[in-house]
Design a protein around this nucleic acid. Sequence first.
DNA 1: TCAATATTTATACAAACGTATAACTATTAG
DNA 2: CTAATAGTTATACGTTTGTATAAATATTGA
Lengths: 216, 216
Amino acid sequence: MSENEPKFRREPAQQRKEALIEATLTLIAEQGIRGATVREIAKRAEVTQGLIRHYFSSKEELISAAYEYHMKVMTQLTEGTDLQANTSGKTRLVRFVESGLTPPVVDPRAVSLWAGFLNKVRADAQMFEIHEQTYHDFRGRLEALIGEALNEANILITPPRLRSLAIACNAVMDGLWMEGGALPDAFEPEELPRIGLESISAIIGLELTQTTEGQS
Amino acid sequence: MSENEPKFRREPAQQRKEALIEATLTLIAEQGIRGATVREIAKRAEVTQGLIRHYFSSKEELISAAYEYHMKVMTQLTEGTDLQANTSGKTRLVRFVESGLTPPVVDPRAVSLWAGFLNKVRADAQMFEIHEQTYHDFRGRLEALIGEALNEANILITPPRLRSLAIACNAVMDGLWMEGGALPDAFEPEELPRIGLESISAIIGLELTQTTEGQS
DNA sequence: TCAATATTTATACAAACGTATAACTATTAG
DNA sequence: CTAATAGTTATACGTTTGTATAAATATTGA
């Protein structure tokens, strides 16, 4: 009669936290922060709602933790591609653009998350700091790569002009990323990186679409 | 003793509806759709909550009406600039880009609204249709202007290539619009249209920054 | 094997939510 | 001036929300 099946399993703290955060992010992407209720989060993570309060002292704290986690993952996604150092700046720029305009960076969920967090990021000082740092870091890396690529080609450029080019290229990438994520069926798979590279080539005045170096 | 001050005023139906919709949009921009509660909407519109149900049979209907209203306003904002017909395509393209990259189109509230509506637009078929139509309309207009400007300069271009250029220019505008709205203090007032025109000039291969025609 | 402990479940509560309906009153038509 | 109408307020109801606390149980160390 009495089956001694355990009624629940205890998981390592970090693993549970991550599961709760993942469920939170999915729900925020689907229904916004207010739509990510503690009960629904618990259901998705397959625990009861009381457990959330055991790991996070409030919903506010869970949301902040989820944001931090997400931004870290996104940063790693755009960093990870390039490990071998002796590739040219031009090639690294090409790869940076390509990886930023293909999955998993281009992804409906990522765009939805950006939208879902926007207001909260504006209101919360700590989250705003994380956002600004990530944004400037991304643009700074793009600016450095453009500078190196132009330098290799012996194209001279002033710092303010380089800043403008970086803002413009960043805007192209942001725009394509947003549209690719918001309208996933409106573009062919290779269309986004192709248009991105063509546009950035034109903007910085250096052809990027015919790479002679080996493609990883 | 008994002052015969009227306890409320009756307003024309359309005026009340618009006030309710405006309050709704402001709240959606601030806190998302779920944050736009009927009670808070009523408070902002300075009426009691019961009145909302007199004009809209449900919150769902109010949200849809607010979206339709907002998209109409945004469309008019990007249409309105150009009335005199005998200006060149190049000039009209310049004005189109400039007006799309300055207030009131570039505006934190507009970006927040875009973010706030994103999920709902994906889920609701009717709202999705409105969104797609507006988006394609905008890009179509941009594509036509680019085509005319290039044609005037005797630059030949194939239709698929024109499509790519339009997607790219649209992405530049979207990206700058988004960044200008999300980080209002990160750019100088003239920086966005300047960078936009420079980038689009480079992308389509036609200089737009030195206009010889009169500027409105 | 058994007590100690931290994880997990279970239950409860006040506040806020969308909705429904009744009561009031400014406005209009005759 | 009066009655009818529709805009508006007022109140209420069942659910869902975030939070709080008690109870149960899986796991660990001695």
